[in-house]
Write a protein that binds this DNA or RNA. Sequence first.
DNA 1: GAATTTTATTAAACTAGTTTAATGTATTGA
DNA 2: TCAATACATTAAACTAGTTTAATAAAATTC
Lengths: 193, 193
Amino acid sequence: MTELLQKNIADHVVLSTTETEEFCNLFEQRFIKKKSFLLREGEVCKFEGFVVKGLFRVYHIDKNGFEQILYFAIENWWITDIDSFTTETPSQLYIEALEDSEVLLISKKDKEFAYSNLPRIEKLFRVMTQKTHVALQRRMIDNLSKTAELRYIEFSEKYPQLFQRLSNIQIAAYLGITNVFLSNIRKKIASKK
Amino acid sequence: MTELLQKNIADHVVLSTTETEEFCNLFEQRFIKKKSFLLREGEVCKFEGFVVKGLFRVYHIDKNGFEQILYFAIENWWITDIDSFTTETPSQLYIEALEDSEVLLISKKDKEFAYSNLPRIEKLFRVMTQKTHVALQRRMIDNLSKTAELRYIEFSEKYPQLFQRLSNIQIAAYLGITNVFLSNIRKKIASKK
DNA sequence: GAATTTTATTAAACTAGTTTAATGTATTGA
DNA sequence: TCAATACATTAAACTAGTTTAATAAAATTC
């Protein structure tokens, strides 16, 4: 049940078999149906999750009702609202399954337990947070410096697997443009070939 | 010399006096003149820094020669290229002093030493990275959902101290707009009052 | 399998932000 | 202290991206 999680951990830090097992035992398996929510705005995020199967989107709805997608998570990715989870304040985000999905969840209490009793777990999450942060910095620069057309092309090349599972509406919300404009971009690209 | 650093650490984690001292002793004091660089594109970032005095900007130059500012750092803020520092690969960023500045630097080797010998330092950097990441997530959402005018106003309200030390060119590069357009925004705001 | 909802496309008018270039004013530096 | 450089503003033509609305196709649901 936790094979994929174990492999994911091993990609970040070196843990003994016992440590890995003890940590993985803290997770609870959950099945989430397409269009169901793991988290809604206003709720405190009480978990950190690892996607075993399926696809999620983490997004915000602004005061004009537009959705901005912070990130997607497919198999082998982690999901949480790190802000709400760490500060125990109401979330401003939604986490929604875009496909029938399976996740492994760890509670705040069990994660604290791990931090105290399994010292290398602290390193695991430091390293993971660093990597996520680096990725977001790159995306920030891209959003500041590149046109939507280029961002679309690069997104399709960087995450081909994810790309073909997403509707254009979702991709547009991630790129920060309207789906109408994305349609224009797609037409333009198609006509070039 | 390290009073401000000690206070900053205490704001994030609980350390004993000895731990704090031992950690702070790993830092080296450096004075950086205005317009000098702590890091340039292509160099490997060999330090993590804490600003005691002055002002820095961390930015990227895209292939059209435009600068995107990732963040500013004044007194009591940390600076590094976390990507280059952790992976030991050439940086894509510049770190430049915008005022005569004083920083405390810790080398990669000494930071690794601290991680191994002062276990709570691992927590310190996990917590700090999390906070930085949350701030960047918020900025990402703002950039996707808000107009430049609103971002400008909110920036001035959120960081008034920093704001008045920056030229409009720097602010525009941070907001992701041209300084010409920023000038229009300023005119529009002024006429409203 | 018919009805409903969601998705993608197109068009046309619009707006936020860019580009280039000129001008005046502050700052900086030798 | 004077020349050079950096900064802020304005104008005008332009372009990237939005808005609204209509239509067709695809997917979902009962």
